[in-house]
Deep mutational scan, measured.
Amino acid sequence: MAMNGTITTWFKDKGFGFIKDENGDNRYFHVIKVANPDLIKKDAAVTFEPTTNNKGLSAYAVKVVPL
């Protein structure tokens, strides 16, 4: 089920960042999981599918909501 969130941290040079989800949890995401990576920036609103990996909470099918 899709969730909403906000990008809180973005490491462009490393290709990953973190999203604060609607429950207040931080989720890892990688640029290859983003549909529109050219719009990635700190504080951008996103929708995504929540999941977990071996390191904890993460996100896939991430879409940055255009302003």
Rank of each mutant, 00 (worst) to 15 (best):
Y60M: 14
A2R: 15
K63Q: 12
P37Q: 06
P50N: 02
T47F: 07
N4A: 11
I19L: 08
D21E: 00
K14M: 09
A44W: 04
D13I: 08
N36F: 06
K63D: 05
G5W: 02
Y60N: 15
H30T: 12
N26D: 11
A61S: 12
F29D: 01
K41C: 10
V46N: 01
K55N: 10
T8K: 10
V34Q: 03
I40A: 05
L67M: 13
W10S: 01
E49I: 15
F16P: 02
K55H: 13
V46P: 00
K42W: 06
K12R: 09
N4F: 12
R27A: 02
P50E: 03
P37S: 06
K42Y: 07
A45R: 13
G17R: 00
K63A: 09
A45W: 12
T51Q: 11
K12T: 07
G17V: 02
G5Y: 03
G15F: 06
D25E: 10
N36H: 06
K42R: 12
R27S: 00
K33V: 15
K42Q: 09
I7R: 00
K20E: 08
T6E: 04
V31W: 10
I40Y: 05
A61T: 05
F48M: 02
K55C: 11
F18Q: 03
H30L: 08
I7Q: 00
I32P: 05
N26A: 09
K42H: 08
K55F: 14
E22H: 06
V64Q: 02
F18L: 05
T6R: 12
N26E: 11
W10H: 02
N26R: 14
N54I: 12
T51S: 13
R27Q: 01
Y28L: 06
I7W: 01
E22C: 09
V62M: 04
A59P: 01
I7F: 01
G56H: 08
I19G: 00
L57C: 05
K63F: 11
T8V: 11
V64I: 10
K20P: 01
D43L: 08
R27P: 00
W10L: 03
G56S: 06
P37L: 05
N53C: 10
G24P: 01
D13F: 09
F16W: 12
L67I: 12
L39I: 07
F16Y: 14
K33M: 15
G17L: 02
D21S: 03
E22F: 06
I40T: 03
K42V: 15
E49W: 15
W10F: 11
Y60A: 15
D13T: 11
K33I: 12
F11N: 08
A35D: 12
F16L: 03
A44G: 05
T9M: 15
A44H: 04
R27K: 00
N26T: 14
Y60P: 01
Y60E: 15
A59M: 04
G56W: 09
F16K: 02
V34I: 04
Y60G: 12
D21C: 03
A44M: 09
K12L: 07
A35T: 14
E22W: 07
M3T: 05
F11H: 07
G15A: 05
D13K: 11
M1L: 13
G24C: 07
T52N: 10
F16D: 02
V65Y: 10
K14Q: 09
K42N: 06
I32E: 15
K42S: 06
G24L: 04
F11Q: 04
L57H: 06
L67K: 12
K41W: 07
G15M: 07
N23E: 06
M3A: 05
A35Q: 14
Y28S: 05
D13P: 06
T9P: 01
I19K: 00
K12C: 08
K55G: 10
V34E: 03
D38E: 14
G17N: 00
F48H: 00
N23I: 06
K41V: 10
V31I: 13
T8C: 09
L57G: 04
D25M: 10
K41F: 09
I19N: 01
M3I: 08
K20A: 07
K33A: 15
F18R: 03
V62Y: 01
I7K: 00
I40W: 04
